[in-house]
Structures are given as C-alpha cells and as structure tokens.
Computed example of a mutant assay.
Amino acid sequence: MAATASDISAQWSLVLHGGSGVIDRADLKPDQDRAYRGVLAKAAEAGAAVLRAGGAAPDAVEAAIRILEDDPLFNAGRGAVFTADGRNELDAAIMDGATLEAGAVAGVTRVKNPISAARAVMERSPHVLLIGEGADAFAAAEGLARVDPSYFFVERRWRALERQLARDGLPIPARPAGASRDETHAALAHDEGKRGTVGVVARDVRADIAAGTSTGGTTGKRWGRVGDSPLIGAGTYADNRSAAVSGTGEGEYFIRLSVARAIAALVELKGLPLQAAVDQVIQRDLTALGGQGGVIAVTPDGQMAWSFNTSGMYRARIADGEPLAVAIYKDEP
C-alpha cells in the first residue's frame, strides 16, 4: 500500500511504524484499534516535540522508539515476542544520515530500551554491531537501564508462542520465572504474524536525517536467529545524500534485497522521488521475491513516504505545518 509523498516545504518531519502484517479491520476490536492509535500518536508527538525544539534527528528517533519499546502492544522492548526457548531476545539499530555513523545490538535480554543501547554503540564504541551477552555487558557498563527478563513478559505473546510451537511440533518451554499474568493493557496486543517491528525516521530543521528500528524478532525463532532490523542497509539506513529508511517485515527477504539501502540508492543514484523508490522496492522487488513487509522513509528535502504489501501496517506521520496522521489498515491514506 502506497502513501502519497508529502510536499517538500516542511522544516522538519517524522514518520514511524509499529510493524506490518496481518492487520485487517476484522482482526482488531474497537478497544485494540483505539489503543494502537493512541500509542502511535504518543510516540509521534514525542519525536515531534524534539524536532519542534530544534533537536537533532537521532534524538527524535530515539525518543519516539523508546515510547514504542515501553508499550507491550508492540513487538519491541516490553512487548517482544518469545524465542522457541521461551526467551525474549531484542534487536535494534540507529543511523545518523549526517555522519553515516551507526550502532546496533542483537540478542540482548536485559536492556530496557534496546534503541538506546544501539545509540550508545554508535556514539561510545568503535563498533557498529554488538550481540548477545557482550552487548548486554556493554549496555550495563554505559549505565543504561537494565531489567529482569520477566519485565518483557506479555501473556498474549506467550500464548502466541505456544500456538507456534504446537504448529511446529516443538516442545513448549517452562513458563519464565516471575512471569506476570497481566490481562489489562497488555492483553490488547495483536499477533500480526512474523513481521512485528517498530521504527522511526526523522528530518530535523538542519535537514539532517536519521533512522532507527527495534524488534523482538519472530515468534518461536531458534538458533540465535537475527533478522534485518539491526543490520545496516537491510532494515535500517540513513544518508543525507539520499534517504532515511526503516523496515518491517520478513527479515530474511529484507536482508537478501538490502531493502533500506536499495531505496536510498534509487533516490541518490537514479533520482527517483521517494514514493517511487519505496514502491519499487516493496511493491515490485520484495513482492516478486515472495517477501512481505513495509517501510517508512524521509529525505533531507522533506519528502515522507511509506509502502507495504501486507494487509496493514501500524503507522503515523507528522511534519512542520502538517497535522498528525495515524493509520493502520490498507484502505487508509
């Protein structure tokens, strides 16, 4: 599903997604619909507040993603899905288009906000990607907030794991120690399949852009699987010469196509308008390969776009002089 690229006169702009997948109107109850829209709006406004105040694009990206990571409705941070072993393993990445600096973490289990860990890797280490126990140790050394693994437990995600393992003919692991049976807000979480992720792209008043992505991966993943989200050029990319892109979808396909970098290359090297670039990669290339998912993107001149080939994608956009727009389903603009 394509969105019309906005005018390029805005001084700042921000687009976010909360994951794509099987998200039809019939799938969400009215209270779920309201809950998702409310958090999407809250996150977009948090990023917009940074940009309105003249803040940098990476600051806006991190601020908005932290809101999404803290909410159990989304497959990132607190609402992350479970691995086949009954663990939550989190991935995130961030990239600064002005400098091409980037940072990412994969398979972390104790960092409250993986996007902040990714930013710490970008700004306070000589590396781009840290994984597993090493990434957790680095985050701890940097003083980032840590939580017990039980913090990430969401009952609805656990039930999704049980169903997935039953389909796969695999044993169901013991319920994690300290697991909550919260049936309030967290119970509204929707299982959108294997394409749950959150991401934000932003352009600040200096026309610098940035992108960030965070995810819990796929339900029932095994063998330390890592998808596209923390891989620079696959699920996350930003370059002031082209575009900032964050993806959500079946990571293995995004990796094979280098989706985020491919979109940026079409803008930079072929001069395609942003909407045409995202549609070419998502509606043509990704679809032809058999992959499903979507992207959000911005350019230094203020273009905003999204495109997805699934039945829905949680999404929002806001810009200087433009009202907040929040959407979920394919038939929404």
Results as ranks from 00 to 15, higher is better:
residue 247 G to K: 01
residue 234 A to S: 13
residue 165 L to E: 12
residue 156 R to S: 14
residue 179 A to H: 13
residue 200 V to I: 09
residue 218 T to M: 15
residue 226 V to N: 09
residue 169 G to K: 04
residue 203 R to T: 08
residue 163 R to Y: 08
residue 249 G to I: 01
residue 184 T to G: 12
residue 208 D to H: 14
residue 228 D to Q: 04
residue 249 G to R: 03
residue 242 S to Y: 00
residue 217 G to A: 02
residue 175 R to I: 11
residue 211 A to W: 02
residue 229 S to V: 06
residue 180 S to H: 15
residue 225 R to D: 04
residue 200 V to H: 02
residue 206 R to Q: 15
residue 173 P to T: 05
residue 191 D to I: 10
residue 166 A to C: 03
residue 164 Q to M: 12
residue 184 T to V: 14
residue 156 R to N: 13
residue 210 A to K: 01
residue 248 T to I: 01
residue 167 R to N: 12
residue 222 R to M: 12
residue 190 H to V: 11
residue 225 R to G: 04
residue 151 Y to F: 13
residue 173 P to I: 05
residue 198 V to I: 14
residue 171 P to I: 10
residue 194 K to N: 15
residue 206 R to K: 14
residue 244 A to I: 03
residue 238 A to T: 07
residue 215 T to P: 05
residue 222 R to V: 13
residue 177 A to G: 09
residue 223 W to Q: 14
residue 240 N to S: 06
residue 175 R to S: 03
residue 172 I to K: 10
residue 188 L to V: 08
residue 200 V to N: 05
residue 227 G to F: 07
residue 179 A to Y: 13
residue 174 A to W: 00
residue 204 D to W: 06
residue 175 R to H: 09
residue 208 D to F: 02
residue 228 D to K: 04
residue 210 A to L: 09
residue 170 L to Q: 13
residue 197 T to E: 07
residue 242 S to V: 00
residue 164 Q to W: 08
residue 180 S to E: 11
residue 222 R to F: 07
residue 227 G to N: 04
residue 223 W to H: 12
residue 174 A to Q: 13
residue 165 L to T: 05
residue 225 R to T: 08
residue 203 R to I: 10
residue 213 T to S: 14
residue 170 L to Y: 10
residue 248 T to A: 11
residue 175 R to N: 03
residue 201 V to H: 03
residue 149 P to N: 04
residue 191 D to K: 09
residue 180 S to V: 13
residue 189 A to W: 04
residue 207 A to H: 12
residue 170 L to V: 14
residue 185 H to N: 12
residue 240 N to W: 00
residue 194 K to P: 12
residue 212 G to M: 06
